[in-house]
């Protein structure tokens, strides 16, 4: 589902990025990405979501070689990858419904189908009653759930989350993780970057640890050895 073959990403004038990272995430896996700030977690997610291109090596997502992907195909790849951010990235002047519907609108679905899917996604994150309000009237946890609904509404095979619980209290963080687990149970591949080690360990899932751009530890490999 997601494969990195000796992938490096460097930024001019910066020591950040990734250095020769190789990894393989299978379909239906739920994987946590941990490490200190600047370890390369966000860079790795950006490479998967094609917000960045690798400097060296090859990145495969859902059988697409992103290294060779034409610019015109970038939007199509992004439709196969749901993305969740710490700052939610919602359209403040659109309703919750419109925000969640956005991936379906860009994909060209009909009105009926959009309504059906958005209602299902909002129901999943328990926000169906708030479909017609603006995101600014919601709490941080609710806004994050809108972001999650938007990421899963088009049923992408891969969902990426960059510090999804960064601004949430432990109870809300746990609720969000439960949601991710539910998506994972229906076959969605999840790659979640977080520095909340306690939360990660409580989930008992595969953990990839990055340090200074290198893959320091893969819990699956550790288990197998």
């Amino acid at each position: 589902m997601i494969r990195f073959d000796n992938v490096s990403k460097s930024y001019p004038g910066s020591s950040g990025g990734l250095r020769e990272v190789s990894l393989h995430i299978l379909p239906g896996e739920m994987v946590f990405l941990t490490g200190h700030s600047g370890a390369g977690k966000s860079t790795l997610l950006k490479l998967v979501g094609l917000l960045e291109r690798s400097s060296r090596g090859q990145v495969w997502v859902n059988k697409h070689n992103l290294t060779r992907l034409k610019p015109a195909d970038v939007p199509l790849l992004r439709r196969e990858v749901g993305m969740i951010f710490q700052d939610h990235r919602l359209l403040v002047d659109r309703t919750v419904f419109d925000n969640v519907a956005l991936p379906l609108v860009v994909a060209g679905l009909g009105h009926q189908e959009i309504r059906r899917r958005v209602q299902a996604a909002l129901d999943k994150v328990s926000l169906l009653k708030k479909a017609r309000v603006l995101p600014v009237t919601l709490s941080g946890g609710e806004q994050q759930r809108v972001g999650i609904a938007r990421a899963i509404v088009s049923k992408p095979p891969v969902v990426l989350a960059d510090e999804p619980t960064g601004n949430l209290d432990p109870e809300l963080s746990h609720e969000i993780m439960q949601l991710f687990q539910e998506f994972n149970q229906v076959g969605v591949t999840l790659l979640i970057a977080t520095h909340d080690l306690a939360l990660v360990e409580s989930m008992q899932k595969r953990i990839l640890t990055l340090e200074q751009g290198r893959l320091l530890r893969d819990s699956r490999s550790s288990e197998s050895t």
């Binding site: 979501g49 992004r78 919602l90 860009v106």
Partner: peptide
């Protein structure tokens, strides 16, 4: 600008 970036994030093409 913010709206355009978010649309691109969710797979909006340049034509869209």
């Amino acid at each position: 600008r913010d709206e355009i970036e978010i649309i691109k994030l969710v797979g909006g093409s340049n034509a869209f």
